[in-house]
Design a protein around this nucleic acid. Structure first.
Length: 855
RNA sequence: GGCCCCGUGGCGGAAUUGGUAGACGCACGCGACUUAAAAUCGCGGGUCUUCGGGCGUGCCGGUUCGAGUCCGGCCGGGGCCACCA
């Protein structure tokens, strides 16, 4: 077979694209833009297969849209601040900056071998002052606008990373990176007021019709809007009251106790002098942090001996301190209605409190209905034993209860969110310095804008725990910009999610030295038309960015609030796992197949084949994209990644799969190079008519054009690949019998090459030039499907008898119902099935089916 | 515990608003080429069959002329959140 030199050919076309600046994006008001963005990588050292999948998907979209005539922007950059750089500094004695910048160089080179259509002129790295000085300016604007503030608060402290984590970065009570159980600490922290946008962020989700439903639901749940009421109960014997948040004030007549959080401001006053109080509080704080422990932890209460007055009735309820009440949600206090809340029921049973149902389930008798071990939490039913709410359905009763509370002056309607403000202070070196100065006289003073950037010092040491910039001998000492007194810089740096909350805007004007971006340019390129990345950022990066864009809007930077119009979340890449005879994980490259059994490649010792799991370094089930690209070429890798598995699902990486893709790349090359000499010259006029087989080849080709377009647009890349293979199979099977046939063959082959271009850009360029085209395919518009060829003139449909397929018939497209019925009934298979039976009805759906109903 | 998603050949997966289930590929088997192997090319396949056909999309039932697709109830797998009042 003719040789396809993958390495040379791919390098050749990459160089040509580079020379001709094929992917440089320039604002052009006369052309419709299309912004394709993949989540930028953290420069950890080497790209992994997850990156390859992500950027391949984006590249297919970018190349396709570009061919369709859009002015495509497809940038790339580096999420370059973060803790791994500091860990590397500790472990390898490399400076975080040097380590990061050299990783970027390596990874940029690796990405370039993939043949991505990226405009590298727009490359950004978040760790350079040219980037983060703008972030500091933005922070100061937020500060001015009241969107950034500092307060002392309980924070999540990661004892391994020695830093604070945002709520979103605590997973199962553990740090999202370190996996260490987080501790509670009280610290002075900077916050961004994301809660001010809670409603807007929630409402905006409705408009995100090109986002996955799953992500939208996750964000909705994370924001967690609850409508309810804050109602105050007077404390008996004290001139004070406590506010309680509830979404079910309709159950107030069933309330039999109240519980406040251990860190509620009233807790000490009410429980302080009772024996056992200190022990109880201590006990509450030591509850384990794993999710199981939290969910199953025994609900414990401490009876303060105090009581509160019921707001509607003349009765009192005991006040407990409970280990299950959270101070940072609602008011940190709840009333217990055991009949209609399972947790309250468990608590009531444990402490011998009364259980009074107030909602009667449908079909129950009010005289006999009793609560057993299960609370009736369902909201269907009618209120009873509830005075003014009697007879009301739950939703109406809720409104009535709130109205009553408001008219009594006992409280008011509130909307409660689960979302908390975003804590952005990190006690780390490798991040964007927070540009403020603490002055003993003036307090917190912003760094004047003409003094930006506040640059990270290079000469820091990592030989002691804690923040390297905090112990730098000079860096933090400065003069107060207001009064000139000796003052200290803020030594905390920003959460790296700040960096990634606006990088997509920086891409719009990446070289601008003075501004984060020119508003005109951002207005042209934004919003992102297609964003692609992993689902793991559903409530982190994707929510922060939505907030950040709105905050920027309110500071006058942009005229819109929603950054990403279209989102696609790709699945993970998985691989088989292997263990050696000692039960240690081993790399796939250390395994070889001995017939049906897996053995160690070196000594032939037995290997245990384990589950197929997400690629991870710890399980060693990883493959290195660089090696794979070197062996099989970028096109084969791209093809394999897009074949078979739908992009949103997990993709199992297999050797057989990549080899299959590689064989196909070679087969395509041979197919086209073998037939090129038989083709008419490019530009030969279209013949008047075609023989039958040429006609059907043309239909196949034009139908493929139409289908591939929609398949790429709706991210069904696996189906696009299948269609390409079908067309190449048709071309391989075709033998022209006339000049017209040869013309049809050239047409189909050109179409094949054009539609495979987004997926296999190098091979298609090569074959395009083999066919005698001087222009590069990247400059060639997407082929147009001839509508006349999109429909076959005959159609094969099934004939059913009582719903079971008995035959197929082929009819002209123009055939009427009667023709179809006649043809169907004439089929021998149909005849056999209806023999001796009465035909009751014949259903004909033209172009689809004939169903003969017999009885 | 709450919310959400998914169950189709040996495997990954196709199947437009309900209309020929299994496209396309992987693996496999057979054949050709070869001294041989690899590569390549060709052919084959859901399953049972008395060769008429029967049975088949996790299970049970329903709607319909017709259900992988819609509805109800189970069973199994996965994801996200999780003491949120």
């Amino acid at each position: 077979m003719s040789r396809y030199n993958i390495r040379e050919t791919e390098a050749k076309w990459q160089a040509r694209w580079e020379e001709s600046a094929a992917f440089r994006a320039t604002e052009d008001e006369n052309r419709e833009k299309f912004y394709v963005l993949e989540m930028f990588p953290y420069p950890s050292g080497r790209i992994h297969v997850g990156h390859v999948r992500n950027y391949t998907l984006g590249d297919v979209v970018a190349r396709y849209r570009s061919a369709c005539g859009y002015n495509v922007i497809h940038p790339m950059g580096w999420d370059a601040f973060g803790l791994p750089a500091e860990n590397a500094a500790l472990g390898r004695n490399a400076h975080p900056k040097d380590w990061t910048l050299s990783n970027i160089d390596v990874m940029r080179g690796q990405l370039q071998t993939m043949g991505l259509s990226i405009d590298w002129d727009r490359e950004v790295a978040t760790c350079v002052p040219e980037y983060y000085k703008h972030e500091q300016k933005i922070f100061l604007d937020f500060l001015k606008k009241g969107l950034a503030y500092r307060k002392e608060s309980m924070v999540n402290w990661d004892p391994v990373e020695n830093t604070v984590l945002a709520n979103e970065q605590v997973v199962d009570g553990k740090g999202w990176r370190s996996g260490a159980p987080v501790e509670r600490r009280k610290l002075n922290q900077w916050f961004l007021k994301i809660t001010a946008y809670a409603d807007e962020l929630l409402d905006g989700i409705k408009e995100l019709d090109r986002w996955p439903e799953k992500v939208r639901i996750m964000q909705e749940n994370w924001i967690g809007r609850s409508e309810g009421v804050n109602v105050r109960f007077d404390i008996v014997g004290k001139d004070a009251d406590i506010a309680f948040f509830s979404t079910r004030p309709d159950t107030l007549f069933g309330a039999s106790f109240v519980v406040i959080a251990p860190d509620h401001p009233m807790a000490g006053e009410l429980g302080g002098n009772k024996p056992g109080f200190a022990e109880f509080i201590k006990d509450c704080q030591s509850v384990g942090t794993s999710e199981e422990a939290i969910a199953r932890a025994e609900k414990k209460g401490f009876d303060t001996g105090w009581t509160v007055k019921h707001p509607f009735e003349d009765r009192e309820m005991p006040v407990f301190i409970g280990n299950f009440v959270l101070m940072d949600y609602g008011t940190g206090a709840v009333f217990g209605c055991p009949a209609h809340d399972q947790r309250d029921l468990d608590f009531a049973r444990k402490y011998g409190l009364s259980v009074k149902p107030v909602v009667l389930p449908p079909g129950e008798d009010p005289e006999t209905f009793e609560i057993g071990d299960e609370a009736y939490e369902t909201k269907t039913g009618v209120h009873y034993q509830s005075e003014f709410m009697n007879g009301m359905a739950v939703p109406d009763a809720i409104q009535a209860a709130i109205a009553k509370i408001e008219s009594l002056g006992k409280g008011h309607r509130v909307i409660q969110y689960r979302l908390r403000d975003w804590g952005i202070s990190r006690q780390r070196y490798w991040g964007c310095p927070i540009p403020v100065i603490h002055c003993p006289h003036c307090g917190t003073v912003p760094v004047p804008e003409d003094q930006l950037p506040v640059e990270l010092p290079y000469d820091v040491t990592f030989d002691a725990p804690g923040n390297p910039i905090a112990r730098h001998p000079q860096w933090k000492h400065c003069k107060c910009p207001e009064c000139g007194a000796d003052a200290e810089r803020e030594t905390d740096t920003m959460d790296t999610f700040m960096d990634s909350s606006w990088y997509f805007l920086r891409y719009c004007d990446a070289q601008n030295p003075d501004l984060p971006f020119d508003p005109q340019k951002a207005a042209y390129w934004m919003t992102v038309d297609q964003y692609i990345g992993g689902v793991e950022h559903a409530v982190l990066h994707l929510l922060y960015s939505r907030f950040f864009t709105r905050a920027l809007r309110d500071c006058g930077y942009v005229g819109f609030g929603e950054p990403f119009a279209g989102l696609f979340t790709q699945g993970m890449v998985t691989h088989q796992t292997f263990k050696d005879k000692n039960g240690q994980w081993i790399f796939p490259t250390e395994v070889r197949m001995d017939g049906e059994t897996a053995v160690h490649a070196e000594d032939g010792s037995p290997v245990t084949v384990g589950r197929i799991e997400k690629m991870s370094k710890s399980k060693k089930n990883v493959i290195d994209p660089e090696n794979i690209i070197e062996t099989y070429g970028a096109d084969a890798v791209r093809l394999f990644i897009l074949s078979d598995s739908p992009p949103e699902r997990d993709l199992e990486w297999t050797e057989a799969g990549i080899e299959g893709a590689w064989r196909y790349v070679n087969r395509l090359h041979k197919l086209v190079t073998d037939l090129v000499s038989d083709l008419p010259a490019p530009g030969t006029p279209e013949p008047k008519s075609f023989e039958d087989n040429a006609e059907s080849l043309r239909r196949a080709a034009h139908q493929a054009v139409a289908e591939i377009g929609t398949r790429i647009e709706d991210f069904h890349m696996n189906k696009a690949v299948a269609k390409i293979r079908e067309l190449s199979n048709a071309i391989a099977a075709f033998t022209p019998r006339t000049d017209a046939g040869g013309w049809a063959l050239r047409e189909a082959t050109e179409i094949l090459i054009q539609i495979m271009n987004p997926i296999m850009p190098h091979l298609s360029e090569e074959l395009w030039s083999t066919l005698g085209h001087a222009d590069m395919l990247v400059r060639t518009p997407w082929p147009k499907a001839d509508p006349a060829l999109l429909q076959d003139d005959s159609v094969t449909i099934g004939v059913q008898v009582n719903g079971k397929v008995r035959a197929t018939i082929t009819l002209p497209k123009t055939a009427g119902k009667d023709d179809a019925e006649k043809a169907a009934l004439a089929e021998p298979g149909v005849q056999r099935s209806i023999e001796g039976k009465t035909v009751r009805k014949v259903i004909v759906v033209p172009g689809r089916i004939v169903n003969v109903v017999v009885g």
